[in-house]
């Protein structure tokens, strides 16, 4: 579904991603793990179109998308849960969700909202509350729910565990696993390697802008280098 071939990207003048090649097949759940500053978030922004591709290929369902604007990629049903949630703070939960379904026909919105509320009942209770008045966990649910309004074919998730209480981290991973089981293709970048590899099919290890390792999630979990660097021995 997503093919990245020999991709390079810069942030201003400094190169952040080097010769990245990643494949995500339809229905797969793929995690990219790596330390802070490895370029994980930049990679997500490149896929979403928020950071330009310097060279290389970015194919979605066989089509080159690297020249498309972010909103055009949303129209192709690529959804993005940004790092740090980035909910629309002054807007209500309902309004956040409405923007999530922006490219969809308006008459279809109530059904989509219902679906999101079925996954996160908490959002249903807070429909008319401004997003910034909610807790970090609720905001993370909203960020995921907002992306799900697209009914995405490919869901990009940037650091789902950041700044959340462990119980909420578990809940968020559980939701991703359920979405994956329901057929959504997911690409997750995550610092919490243990949790990420626990729910995904395959993984990549990103180090200072290079992919240094890839493989089945179970195999990566058993890899000595990965254990030492990312799983705490």
């Amino acid at each position: 579904m997503l093919e990245i071939r020999n991709l390079n990207a810069h942030y201003g003048h400094s190169q952040v991603l080097y010769d990245i090649s990643i494949d995500v097949k339809a229905g797969e759940f793929v995690s990219i793990i790596g330390a802070n500053g490895a370029g994980k978030s930049t990679l997500m922004k490149v896929i979403m179109g928020l950071v330009p591709v310097s060279s290389g290929k970015l194919l979605f369902k066989g089509n080159e998308i690297s020249r498309l604007e972010p909103w055009q990629r949303a129209g192709m049903k690529i959804a993005y849960v940004p790092e740090g949630r980035r909910v629309f703070g002054e807007l209500t939960v309902a309004e956040n969700l409405r923007i999530g379904g922006w490219v969809e026909p308006p008459q279809d919105l109530p059904r989509r909202v219902e679906k999101v509320v079925a996954i996160f009942p908490r959002l249903g209770e807070r429909m008319n509350q401004a997003a910034r008045t909610m807790s970090g966990g609720e905001q993370q649910m909203l960020a995921i729910g907002r992306a799900l309004m697209l009914e995405p074919e490919l869901l990009l998730v940037d650091e789902i565990s950041m700044g959340l209480m462990p119980i909420l981290v578990n809940r968020c991973f559980e939701v991703l696993k359920q979405l994956s089981e329901a057929g959504t293709t997911i690409l997750l970048v995550e610092q919490n390697a243990r949790k990420a590899l626990g729910v995904s099919h395959r993984g990549y290890v990103l180090e200072t802008g290079h992919i240094v390792l890839e493989g089945e999630a179970t195999r990566l979990r058993d890899d000595d280098a990965v254990r030492r660097a990312y799983l705490g021995g």
Binding site: K45, M48, G49, L50, E69, P70, W71, R73, A74, G75, A79, Y80, P82, R86, V87, F88, G89, E90, L91, E95, I99, G100, W102, V103, R146, A147, M149, L150
Partner: peptide, 16 residues
């Protein structure tokens, strides 16, 4: 409202 609050997030959801 979306653009004012989080422009990139709005763009990634399909708002130009």
């Amino acid at each position: 409202g979306g653009v004012r609050n989080e422009e990139d997030a709005a763009a990634s959801l399909g708002v130009n």
